[in-house]
């Protein structure tokens, strides 16, 4: 059972570490992403949404050095959900023909009007703009920097430390599980459904025991380096450049102009 690790948490995490915008101040990126999100939602204009989508794609390509293929590949994932939701908004079900277009099915009609389609399209566009704004953060900022931003925003330290450690343990446990999975595969553990169920149960149970043991060793290792209940790291200083702030304000001003026009 060969498998590759190209999707899932690995890939988004890796993109964030490789991003050309990783050196930007994380708090600045958060403000930019959240601000743009708010503009996109508040303006509620297809032109603004489209501008947000295109501008952020250009930013990810130009400054983030992300290939458009990767970027739109990721955007497509959410687009699939949005289109399904949009279709549900655009269409209506009725027993008599209504609206501008109908599809006749046994017992009922699926109908849509030009207005409802326009509304659904602008909704999908708006949601996609919001998703792009969040991708701006997710694809350029590593999880630990996000936690640091939250910590500075006065989220309780306990929650921040939990998030930080969970992030690290996800990879430790994934690694452990991957190895156990391979070991089970090497002994034909996935040959048929019944064996697979047993092997999965076994590895999952084992993972739990190992995780418990691991946590004890970890707390020893942390105590050995003087941990006393307060998780502290040296964060790299990433100063905000004036040009970045000016760029952000210009972008927002352009969005306001688009919204008012």
């Amino acid at each position: 059972m060969a498998h590759r690790h190209t999707h899932g948490p690995h890939s988004i995490d890796r993109l964030a570490y490789q991003s050309g915008m990783r050196g930007w101040n994380p708090a600045f990126k958060t403000v930019l992403a959240v601000g743009t999100l708010v503009f996109c939602l508040a303006a509620d204009r297809p032109a603004v949404s489209a501008a947000v989508i295109l501008a952020l794609a250009a930013l990810q390509k130009g400054k983030g050095k992300l290939t458009l293929r990767d970027y739109f590949g990721l955007l497509l994932v959410s687009l699939a959900f949005l289109l399904l939701g949009g279709a549900a908004v655009a269409c209506d079900i009725s027993t008599v023909p209504a609206g501008d277009w109908q599809v006749r099915l046994p017992w009922f009609y699926v109908c849509a009007s030009a207005d409802s389609v326009r509304f659904a399209a602008s909704l999908v566009l708006k949601a996609l703009g919001a998703v792009s704004a969040m991708y701006l953060l997710a694809l350029t900022t590593t999880a630990c920097e996000l936690v640091d931003v939250l910590r500075r925003a006065h989220l309780p330290p306990l929650l921040c430390e939990l998030m930080y450690l969970i992030y690290r343990f996800v990879f430790v446990l994934l690694d452990m599980y991957g190895r156990m999975r391979q070991a089970a595969g090497a002994r034909l553990g996935w040959r048929d459904f019944r064996t697979s169920c047993r092997a999965f149960g076994g590895t999952a149970g084992n993972l739990f025991v190992l995780a418990l043991r691991r946590s004890r060793v970890y707390s020893d290792a942390m105590a050995a380096r003087g941990y006393d209940g307060d998780l502290r790291f040296l964060e790299e200083e990433k100063p905000v450049r004036a040009a970045q702030i000016v760029g952000m304000l210009l972008f927002w001003a352009a969005l306001i102009v688009l919204a008012v026009l």
Binding site: C144, R168, V172, Y218, A221, M222, F233, L234, E235
Partner: peptide
């Protein structure tokens, strides 16, 4: 792996 807890080498 029992010792490393941070998310970058420098912060570790």
């Amino acid at each position: 792996d029992d010792q490393i807890i941070a998310s970058t080498v420098a912060s570790e």
